[in-house]
Every structure is written in C-alpha cells, then in structure tokens.
Amino acid sequence: MDELMNILNGIDDSIDWENEKALIDQRLLDSFGVITLVSELEDQFSVEIDAAQMIPDNFNSAEAIYEMIQRLREK
C-alpha cells in the first residue's frame, strides 16, 4: 500500500488519495493520469494491466487500485 501511495503522490500530490472515493467519476484522475499510473503500476508490481481492467470501478480509489493489483498478482 505504501508503495502505491508513493506512486500516486508522484503523479499528483494535490489529490487526497487516501480519502477520495470517486477519482474517475469526479475527473480528478483523467485518462492520461490513468495511463501513466498503469505503466508505473506495471513496472513496480510486475503485473499486466490489460484493457479488461480499464473500468472506472478499478480506479476510483486508492483502495480499489490496490485490490486490483492484489487480484492480478494472484492470477
């Protein structure tokens, strides 16, 4: 989780990552933010995030992102 927070803050440190629950729905994280995020996550956690994961539910909060990573790791 800390690793994830580091990455998130690296992308934009003005967002309250811990408490925001609608990052995508409120457009705090735009499409390009997501793309940057995805590539960083892939490097850091050595998972492959494909198009199937590209849904708002997976990116709306730090928690959701974390859960997605866990899920992909198990695969």
């Binding site: 793309i35 995805v38 590539s39 892939e42 198009a51």
Partner: peptide, 20 residues
C-alpha cells in the same frame, strides 16, 4: 469509443513502450 478503442489503445504495448 473510449471503452473499446481508447482504453485498449492506452493499455496496448505500443503506448506502454512509448511511455517508458
């Protein structure tokens, strides 16, 4: 377009490569 073109494109190897 976003769901079926834009996102798949942005998760594609090409974009990832370019990003790095």
């Amino acid at each position: 377009f976003k769901t079926y073109i834009f996102y798949p494109m942005s998760a594609s190897a090409l974009v990832k490569k370019w990003n790095r």
